[in-house]
């Protein structure tokens, strides 16, 4: 800007040019600690706010009636449920979902779904679905997330309830040391749902067993 002013927290983002005493500098890299810090204060750093970015992206996805999961799965030729960085980014680009994002927002997205050098695209698709469900259930108390008191007696109601919960189930299960490579015992699964506020009715447990049981 023409008039010098005091720096604001949200001046600091990837790609921005900031000027010190008339010398322009472009931010081309940020260290992990700075990023961690910013991500903890999403209100002050909207470009580091995964929910805001996913929310904007979700509107685009919904407007275009896009089902992004199959696109990522096609790119995941080894069926690992994650992609390396290059393929993850090129798939996002291919869907034209990064066009409206700046470098910082793309980096935020990537960091959110990165674990070691793997990018867990399924968890990104989950988050889009969660945000959509949460948005569409706003103002309708019957589908709002509930506390322990009401137990869903049908699998369908249970799944809808699980979907609007803020907890990311797939990520939680994947990271739990009691699960193995996408598999978990029904008892542990029940325990994990309960730990995060979802008590399963016997009928639901039964239906989960019937639908999702695999040979050990």
């Amino acid at each position: 800007s023409q008039q010098p002013r005091i720096f604001r927290p949200n001046d600091i983002y990837l790609g921005n040019v900031i000027s010190f005493n008339g010398n322009d500098f472009q931010i081309i890299e940020m260290d992990n600690m700075s990023l961690d810090f910013c991500e903890h204060f999403p209100d002050e750093f909207p470009m580091m706010d995964t929910f805001k970015i996913i929310g904007d992206m979700m509107h685009q996805i919904v407007d275009r009636r896009l089902d992004i999961r199959p696109h990522f799965r096609r790119a995941d030729t080894k069926r690992r449920r994650w992609l390396d960085q290059a393929v993850f980014v090129s798939t996002l680009d291919g869907l034209a979902l990064t066009a409206d994002l700046n470098d910082q927002e793309v980096l935020t997205l990537m960091r959110r779904f990165k674990d070691a050098d793997s990018y867990y695209y399924e968890e990104m698709c989950d988050l889009v679905s969660h945000v959509y469900a949460k948005n569409s259930s706003m103002g309708t108390p019957s589908t709002k997330s509930r506390k322990f008191t009401i137990i869903d007696s049908s699998l369908e109601a249970f799944k809808q309830n699980a979907r609007v919960r803020t907890i990311q189930w797939r990520r939680t299960f994947r990271k739990d040391p009691q699960t193995h490579d996408g598999f978990v015992t029904l008892a542990i699964l029940e325990k994990l749902f309960k730990k995060h506020g979802l008590q399963l009715a016997d009928a639901v447990v039964d239906e989960i067993r019937r639908t999702y049981e695999v040979d050990p």
């Binding site: 698709c125 679905s129 189930w169 049981e213 050990p216």
Partner: peptide
């Protein structure tokens, strides 16, 4: 004990219904 594929369950939780 009963073993569950949690990815398939999560696929059904996080559907694309728009």
């Amino acid at each position: 004990s009963v073993v569950i594929n949690f990815n398939t369950l999560c696929d059904d939780i996080y559907i694309c219904d728009w």
